[in-house]
Structures are given as structure tokens and as C-alpha cells.
Nucleic acid binder design. Sequence first.
RNA 1: GUGGCUAUAGUGUAAUAGUAGCACAACAUCCUGUGGAGAUGUUUGCACGGGUGCAAAUCCCGUUAGUCACCCCA
Length: 422
Amino acid sequence: MNIRIPKGTQDILPEDISKWYFVENKIREVLIKYGYQEIRTPIFEHTELFVRGIGESTDIVTKEMFTFLDRKGRSLTLRPEGTAPVVRSYLENKMSRVYPVLKLFYLGPMFRCEKPQAGRFRQFHQFGIEVIGTKSPEVDAEVIIASIEVYKKLGLKNLEVLINSVGCKKCRAIYIQKLKEFIKDKIDFLCLECKNRYSKNPLRILDCKKDSCQKIIKKTPIITEYLCQDCQQHFAEVKSYLDILGIKYFVEPRLVRGLDYYTKTAFEIISGELGAQNAIGGGGRYDDLVEELGGDPTPAVGFAAGIERMIIVMNQQNVEWPKNRGLDIFVAKVKGINKDIAFKLLQKVRSAGLSADMDYSSKSLKSQMRLAHKIDVKYTVIIGEEELAKNMVTLRNMKTKEQKEVKIDNLIDELTLCINNV
RNA sequence: GUGGCUAUAGUGUAAUAGUAGCACAACAUCCUGUGGAGAUGUUUGCACGGGUGCAAAUCCCGUUAGUCACCCCA
């Protein structure tokens, strides 16, 4: 055991893989129903994409990226999130020419070099959706609803939707001004972190959980009161669409997200069962990002969710996972029977479209049966000398323990019939 | 990146300085050709590296990893 798995990564073992199939299938099923198309972008991109997209001063860019040089000295970065790559692809492939409004989703690993913790890994998986090319508030609502439906279809319960508007460039600047003015004479009472934030990213002060800061935060002006006409109306409409569809949400005027590109709508979906990392998904509108990355001004809105965190909550809520489906057929042979016969028969069964396996080591029939039981096969074909002399094999139903002799020539038909009846 | 706690067979645990044990799991035999039981038996372990001691799983230091909190986020 010399070489071990890198910190913060994990193997998804065969015993868990059906959970992942289940989750991934449900995600695709729901999102396709909502009219989203899957896109797969590379695992790594030019570092510049994330620096410009996510924001130079964000935590992700300053201290969480896996960045490396390729052999020609170009800086590449393992993607820490999915939105910037999708927008890059959108621009590079000139997708706007074909679809004025594009609805995309992605599903795959992301990388952030953080200290691992409950629900936090260095390689983790997200699914996300992006709608590029419309500023309609219905779409903000749809993105939220689509994500909620994914959660629901997976059996997740007791989730809360927190929503806020962080305004556009213009009104946010005004608000930040007001915020700074308000805090200015109280800055000595803030924690060290927040003192730094004051100049670097004052909005983030609102997120601080320290009691001393909270006292001040509670009295700060609220961004929603400073929204411009356009942002105010947009926010009101988003909420009304959620109301129309009966989605419960909490307006959280101090919700601020960690990525710089958000404008107007920002939202988070949280679960009480996750400890400190309670966000199971989050997103918002990013009306300036496409332009920031070199495209024409194009409004967009998106969402991303952490799949590991979803699975953690599902496990805690005792969601019933679909059972692993065992193989259809196991081929066993009695000692003394030529291996070739079993091997050939096995392949014949597989060719007929049934899943099948055998034990290649020459073990006793008993241990072969044990293996057949362990891997949960439906039927076992036993090749014995007496039957073989009659050109027959024994076919055993592992569930009912009934068995009968079948002519080898009729075996495939018989098996197909049996399996279809299970 | 900072701090607290943890590390013994595949899993879960005991021994707290003096022969590493138990349960489950796995495998085999009892049954010269039949899988969830039983009996018997077998295999598998002190995370890594140093230090103190006659003697270290046990005490000390470091590393690594896990875990929890902070920060931030999915």
C-alpha cells in the first residue's frame, strides 16, 4: 500500500456505482424533459478563462484552483466550476447563430484545492444548467423549478430555497457605497476578516457568521431597497412566477454568492442535514459574463448542484436506492467436465443477449453455486456428466430452487423464456 | 490556509508498556454433482518515519490520511 489516493478524492466503488447511475439518469431525465441539452466541455481549460470568468479576487481563483503548466509553458487549470467553460464553448462554437436562446446542462467532475471536510472534496461532481440569451424572469424561475424537480425525483426532502437579488452593475455599485458608508464608523467592531473584506469585497461581510459582525450586519441597509427600477421589477416577477407555481422560498436579503459574475437573481438551496456545508446547490443570473468573456452582451442564468452532497442527504434521509440487478445466468460445471464445453456455452448465452458469467477456476460445484448466489444470478445452468450424455443440462431457478433438465439445443430459447418471465 | 479530535485484519472493535484477541465477512472441509443454516478449520492487522524504555499497538515528535470547526463553497 505505497501509493494512496490523493487527498480529498475518492473512489466510487462497484457497490456504489448503481447509486450514481440512478442519480445521473434522473438528472438527465428531468432536464431533458425541461428542454435542456447536455454539453460536455473539457476537464481543463486555459487558466485565464476562470480568472476572467469567476473573478480575480474570489477565493476560488486566489487559492482553490489546480493550476499547472503544460509542456510548452501554457497555464492550464482543472475546472473548478462549470459555467465559464459552458459560456466559452457557447462563444467558440457560435451557438447563438443557431439558437437565440440556448438551454444547456452538464454533469461531471469539478476540482477545487481546498481542505477536505464533510461534504467537501477536491474532486467532486456537479450537475448544472445554463440558459443563455434571455433576460426573462420566467427563466430564472424555471431554473429554480427544474433543479427542485431533480431533487424531488431523487426523493430529497426538507430543502429550502433562499433567494435574493444582488442587482446589476449600476445599482450594486450604489448599494456598496451605502454599505461602506454605514459600516465606516463601526469598522473597529468587525472581525479581522471583515475588515479586509471592507476594501476588497464588502458584500461578503453580509455572509459573516460571527456574532460581533452579525450585530452590525443586522442593521445594515438591505440591497433590495437600493435596486434600480429594472432590477426591482425583475426580482418581483421572478418571485411571482415562483408563487404561481407554488414554490416555497425565503427571501434572504443578505445572501451573497462567492462568484463575482452574479447579477440580479441569486439563490441557494440548502439542507439541514449537511452540517456546515449546507448548500446543496446554488445559482443565479449572470448577465455580464458572456460579454466579459468576449461575446456580445447576452443575459444568462444558471444553477449548479453538488452530487456528493445530494447523495449524502439521500443516505441520511434513507432514500430507497434501486437494487443492483444481478446477472441473468451463471454457468457451473461438475468436476471432470471439459472446461471448453462450459466456456463455449457461456458465450452462446451471452450472444443471445443475456448477461452471464462463470467461475473460471476449477472449484467444486458447491463453491460455484455459492458464487452464483453471491452475485445474485437468476438462473444457473449446471453441466453434469449424466445430463451431458443425454445432450442435456440442468437449469436451476435460484429463487425458487426448482430445477429441470433441458436439451442443450433448446437451452437458449428456454433461458430467454425464463428470464422474460422474471 | 488555521485549529480540535482520530488512525489495530475486508468491516466493526478489545488489549493502555510485557505472547495482538473477539465478532461479522471471506475461503475450505464435513456432503466422490447443488447457494442464504450448523459444525470444524484456514487466511488476513498495529497508517508511515523517527525518539524514549530492558521492552512500544500503547508514551513523545514528525509525516500522511480521515474527521469536525473556521474561511469559503457544491
